[in-house]
Simulated assay, not measured.
Amino acid sequence: MATSDVPRLQIVSRIAAGMLGGYAFTWGFIALSIGLLFAARLEFHDAEALATILGFIVFLAAFLWAFGAASVGRVWLVLAGGGALMAGAASLVQSAIL
């Protein structure tokens, strides 16, 4: 691999982390927020709307952080791992409600 390919791979990895990892993180955040807000007696559609609106801000912050962080591995770990943890927690919250 040529030395000029390394920066390209890092940029592609950061873009993928920002897009895919940010999507997973945001999806987990929205799912968990809806479950917790509904459990707190907020109407379902109000909880859904609030979580989705906040999700836009969360995705933007995650995407920008993917480019500002020092380590690409840490970005992948936090975004993809955090998204998976929040999705799992959302599943537990939703099963406890129903």
Rank of each mutant, 00 (worst) to 15 (best):
M1W: 15
A2H: 15
P7Y: 02
P7A: 14
R8E: 07
L9T: 14
Q10Y: 13
I11A: 06
V12G: 11
S13C: 09
S13G: 11
A16K: 06
A16M: 02
G18S: 01
G18R: 06
M19P: 02
M19A: 14
G21R: 00
G22H: 01
F25R: 01
T26Y: 00
T26Q: 01
F29T: 02
I30Q: 09
L32T: 08
G35T: 11
L36S: 09
F38N: 14
A39I: 04
A40P: 09
R41E: 11
L42A: 06
E43T: 11
F44K: 12
F44D: 13
D46R: 15
A49I: 07
A51D: 09
I53A: 10
L54S: 14
I57A: 10
I57H: 12
I57M: 15
F59N: 01
L60W: 13
A62V: 04
F63D: 00
F63Q: 07
W65N: 05
F67C: 05
G68D: 00
A69M: 01
A69R: 03
A70I: 03
S71Q: 15
V72L: 04
V72F: 03
R74H: 05
L79M: 02
A80F: 10
G81E: 06
G82A: 01
G82F: 01
G83W: 05
A89V: 13
A90C: 15
Q94E: 10
A96D: 13
A96M: 05
I97Q: 08
